[in-house]
């Protein structure tokens, strides 16, 4: 996929690809993030879990500069991207994002959705971009949808197209914000399949999710957020079997009771 196809490792032995240090964010005096620290190693898959409103989406939006942080800093590959002098467009070229509500461009075909950024931002030739887009669509079982408009696709297909669109820019990191929560249960699995394949290909991902089973299955590291604080962080197995923090345990207990684990 991108970069050398090294084995995915759970242990961040190398320098982190993404480093978040003491990030604060508030909206109208309401603190949504309160000093979040996070490190993401190359090829690592990090899942953000936590109750609704705990700040998962906000953290992801801060990572690709859709929001400006109020304090703290974010580094990508050793360069501070929250530096006022850094060019947000340059940063976003390297960080892909997929949204809960797909956000495909309704006036463009699937193929045009996917090739827009490679052609306009990454200055690829149209022919090359189309070839790459078709290969990606093929790989994710969407080859016959290239010329369709988004409103003719099912939710699951739209979300897979959105992932392909982000991947077409060959990002170093992919941010996924609850990409399955708008989907019917039978469509969730097809989108999860795509993410699983990206992990196997060595993609670095930070993912907010309510699907605990999926998080447990795919994450190298799980982070539990509560009220804008990153309360606990650890290997997926440890968080789900023996969480250290009582409040993580309480959260997982609630989820378990509502039958989502």
């Amino acid at each position: 996929m991108t970069g050398p196809a090294t084995e995915p490792t759970a242990e961040p032995a190398t320098a982190p690809l993404l480093r978040v240090e003491g990030v604060w964010k508030n909206y109208h005096g309401h603190h949504v993030l309160r000093g979040v620290d996070l490190e993401v190693a190359p090829h690592e898959v990090v899942c953000l879990i936590g109750a609704s409103g705990s700040g998962k989406s906000t953290l992801l939006r801060c990572l690709n500069l859709l929001e400006t942080v109020d304090d703290g800093a974010v580094w990508l590959d050793g360069r501070e991207i929250t530096d006022p002098a850094a060019d947000p467009d340059e940063v976003r070229k390297r960080i892909g994002m997929v949204f809960q509500s797909y956000n495909l461009f309704p006036h463009m075909t699937v193929l045009d959705n996917i090739t827009l950024a490679p052609v306009r931002v990454h200055r690829r030739s149209r022919r090359e971009a189309v070839a790459r887009a078709r290969a990606l669509l093929e790989r994710f079982g969407l080859a016959d949808k290239a010329d369709a408009y988004p409103d003719r696709l099912s939710g699951g297909q739209q979300q897979r197209v959105a992932i392909v669109r982000a991947m077409a820019c060959e990002p170093s990191v992919l941010l996924l914000d609850e990409v399955t929560s708008a989907l019917d249960p039978e469509l969730v699995t097809e989108v999860m399949g795509v993410i699983r394949e990206l992990k196997q290909a060595g993609m670095t991902m930070v993912m907010a999710t309510h699907e605990m089973g999926f998080a447990r299955d795919i994450a190298d590291t799980v982070c539990f957020l509560e009220n804008g604080v990153l309360l606990e962080r650890g290997p997926a197995e440890q968080i789900f079997t023996e969480p250290r923090e009582p409040r993580t345990r309480a959260f997982l207990q609630r989820v378990l009771e509502s039958g989502r684990l």
Binding site: D89, E90, R92, N103, F105, P106, V121, A166
Partner: peptide
């Protein structure tokens, strides 16, 4: 969210306007 999606793909403010926002608005 259309603008956010465009910007997250690396499109500049002007590109987002030209390729994503305006074509939909004009229609």
């Amino acid at each position: 969210s259309q603008r956010a999606a465009a910007r997250s793909l690396g499109l500049s403010q002007a590109q987002a306007l030209r390729f994503v926002i305006l074509p939909q608005a004009v229609r």
